[in-house]
Design a protein around this nucleic acid. Structure first.
Lengths: 344, 344
DNA sequence: GCCAGATACCGAAGCGCTTTGGAAACTCCT
DNA sequence: AGGAGTTTCCAAAGCGCTTCGGTATCTGGC
C-alpha cells in the first residue's frame, strides 16, 4: 500500500492525502479525518526511504560505538544509554541506527555515514582525552553530541557528561574524613576521558589533605570483575595495604569484594570500597539498601538527555554547542566504614 | 556530491558511472578504474535512501528488543549479541537499526517497520514460550530470525538457540554425580523460553536419579545480583539447605556467591554453584581459570550466526526455515565440589 | 452582481539512484 | 565491403514521497 494507491482509493490526489497525513492546514477537516481513518484501516505508513529522499531528512540518529580491537569488549553501559536515548527518539519519531566500529579508519566511517545520508545526527560514545573524531565531525557538518568529553580538546561541541572529577574528589574526601590515608584507585583505562578525570579528582582530594597518590595503590585497566580482583589482591598483599579503594565500576567493585574476602578480610570494616555506579538496570547496586557506597549517576538518564540535545540541534542547526554536566550523587552503602587502627 | 555531479565530472552518463561502481560487466575496465578513483577522491558514496528506493532493498536489518515495562531492564546479553551480528552486517554491507519497544502494541510496531520499509529483515530477541510475534511475523512476510525459541509454537521459523535443556541437564547431572541431592534452581523468569527449558533440563536430570524438584529450592525472577543474593539467602536459611545451586546468569551467580559468604559458608566447599555463562565480554568468568563452573555458550557467536542466517534468508527468500542449536560447553571452575557430609 | 480573498484541492517536478531498452562504435569473418 | 556479433555507452522511466505553483469553488462586502 503506497500513497498513490491510498489516494486512488479515496478519490483524492496524492498531494491532498500527503498533506492531510502531515497535518498541513490547507485541507478540510472532514477530508483529513477520512484520510486518517483510511490510512489506519489499510495499514498505510509512508515509505521512510521515499520520504527521506523527498525531504532530505533521514529521521534517524546514528550511534557509533567503538569496539576496541585490542580489548574486544562491549561497554556494558551501552545498553542502558541506548534505552534512554531510544525513549526520546520514539517520542520524536526518529529511528536509531547502530554502527559498531573498530578503531581503525573511523574517519572514513563517519564520512560514509554522512554521504550515505541515512542519519541526521550522531551520538559519539567513549571519547578519549583528545578524541580526533570530534574536530572531524565538526568539520563534516553533521550534528553530533558526545557522551563524555575530550579534556584536551579546545573546540566547542555539545556533550553530556558526569562530573567525574568532582564525584571522585568527593568520594575520596569522604574516605579521608573517615580517617583513611592509604587509599587506592582502581580505575578504567586512563586514555579514556572519564577515567582520566576521575584520577584528577582523586588526586585533588588527596592533595587537599597534603597527601600524594602512591603509584603502588593505583591501577588502570579494562573494568572487568577479574581486573578488580587482581588489582585489589595485589594491593592487599602489600605490607602496608590500602584501607580503602575507589573504583570506576560496579563490576570491578565486585571483583574487589571477592579479593577482600579471599584475603580473609571484610569489606566495610577492614577495607572500605567506593565505586562509581552507572545505575545500570541489570546491575542495580542493591534493591533499596545499597551494597556499595557509590557515586551514582544514571546512564539511562544521560542517554535521554544526549538524545534530546541532539534532536534540538537537528531542529535548529544554529543552536550553539551546549555542555551538560550531570552531578553524581554520593550514596552511602555498607561498603565503607572508619579507617581501621593501624594495621602495620 | 551525487551521481549526477560525479557523472558530469567524468563526462560520462549516470548509467555508466552507476554500473562501474556496482561492478556490472558492460563497462570498460579502464573506465571503471577511472570512475572508482574519482569516487574515492571526491568522497562519493551513493545515497542510501535513493538507492533503497530504486532497488527496493533497504540494506538494513532491524533488531527489536523488548523492554518490559514492568521490569524496566535492558538485557545485558544484548550488547554482545549485537556486536556479533554487526560483524556479519558490516561484511555484507548492511546497516543495523534498533527499536526498543515496550511490550504493548508490538504488532503495530512490526507492521510499521515493514510498511516504512527501512529494514529487509528482523532479529527477534527474548521470545516467550508462545511468542505471538512469531506467527505474526510469518504472516507479515518479512524475513526474520529468532534468538531463542518459542517452545509452544508449532510453526516453522528460523532460530538460533543454545541447547538450554541439555546444558542444564548436564550441569545437574554433574552435581548429582558429585553426590549432591538438595540442588536449587535459581532461574530467570519462566515465561521466557530459555528459562523454561532450563528448568525442564534440571527436572529431567533429577528425575533420572529418582528425585523430584523441591519447590523450596526453586526461584524464578529477573536475573540481577540482588535477586541471586536474596533467593540464595532464603534457601540457605532453610533447616535442610541446598548443597548446590544452579543459576541462569553470572550476575545472579555473583549474588549467590555473596549470599554464601554472608551465611558464613564457602562456595565450592559448603555450597556448589553452577551458572550459565553467556561469555559476555565485560563479564568474563575469570581470565583463564574460570571462577564458576558453568555451562558456557558465547552470545557473541550466537549474534554472528543469527545475522548470517538472516542475510541468507534475505538473499534467498525461498530458503526453508532453519533451526540452529548451539551446544553449551561445561567448564569446570572453582565453584563446585563434592557434596558435604550431611549438614542436618 | 462582481470581485478580492479564503478555502480546498490538484498536476507535475524533483529528491538520487537503478535499470530497461536501445544505439553507436568497433571487431571479425566471409 | 557488408553484415553479424561484441563491446561500450546513453536517455529516460520509475521507485514513493513532498512541495511548488497553480486552479476551481466558495464566501462576504459593496
Amino acid at each position: 500500500m503506497n500513497l498513490k494507491q491510498l489516494a486512488a482509493h479515496l478519490n483524492l490526489s496524492q498531494t491532498t492525502v500527503s498533506r492531510a497525513l502531515n497535518g498541513y492546514p490547507e485541507v478540510n477537516e472532514q477530508t483529513r479525518k477520512r484520510v486518517m481513518e483510511a490510512a489506519q484501516a489499510l495499514n498505510y505508513a509512508p515509505n521512510a526511504r521515499a520520504k527521506g529522499l523527498a525531504t532530505g531528512r533521514a529521521m534517524a540518529i546514528g550511534h557509533v560505538i567503538p569496539m576496541s580491537t585490542q580489548h574486544q569488549m562491549m561497554n556494558p553501559v551501552f545498553g542502558d544509554f541506548i534505552a534512554g536515548a531510544s525513549d526520546e527518539y520514539v517520542k520524536a519519531g526518529y529511528d536509531m541506527t547502530l554502527s559498531v566500529t573498530g578503531d581503525r579508519d573511523e574517519e572514513e566511517n563517519y564520512r560514509r555515514l554522512k554521504a550515505k545520508g541515512n542519519v541526521d545526527g550522531i551520538i559519539v560514545h567513549g571519547p578519549s582525552m583528545k578524541d580526533p573524531r570530534i574536530p572531524f565531525l565538526r568539520q563534516l557538518g553533521l550534528p553530533f553530541v558526545v557522551h563524555g568529553r575530550a579534556t584536551e580538546l579546545d573546540v566547542p561541541y555539545s556533550w553530556v557528561d558526569v562530573n567525574n572529577t568532582h564525584a571522585f574528589q568527593r568520594a575520596t574526601d569522604f574516605l579521608l574524613d573517615l580517617g583513611h590515608r592509604r587509599i587506592a584507585l582502581i580505575n578504567g583505562l586512563e586514555f579514556m576521558d572519564f577515567a582520566y578525570r576521575r584520577r584528577v579528582g582523586f588526586a585533588q582530594a588527596l592533595d587537599g589533605h597534603g597527601l600524594l597518590p602512591d603509584p603502588r595503590y593505583m591501577a588502570a585497566g579494562e573494568m572487568t570483575e577479574s581486573y578488580g580482583f587482581e588489582a585489589a589482591s595485589r594491593m592487599l598483599a602489600l605490607p602496608d595495604r590500602p584501607t580503602a579503594m575507589i573504583t570506576s565500576s560496579v563490576i570491578a567493585a565486585i571483583g574487589i569484594r571477592r579479593a577482600i574476602h579471599a584475603a580473609g578480610l571484610e569489606m566495610g570494616r577492614d577495607v572500605s570500597v567506593i565505586t562509581h555506579d552507572d545505575d545500570l538496570s541489570f546491575l542495580r547496586n542493591g534493591p533499596d539498601v545499597p551494597i556499595f557506597t557509590a557515586t551514582r549517576s544514571s546512564v539511562y538518564e544521560a542517554g535521554r538527555i544526549a538524545a534530546a540535545m541532539l534532536l534540538a540541534h537537528i531542529a535548529d542547526p544554529d543552536l550553539p554547542a551546549q555542555p551538560r554536566l550531570l552531578e553524581a550523587q554520593l550514596i552511602i552503602g555498607g561498603s565503607t566504614g572508619p579507617a581501621p587502627q593501624d594495621t602495620h
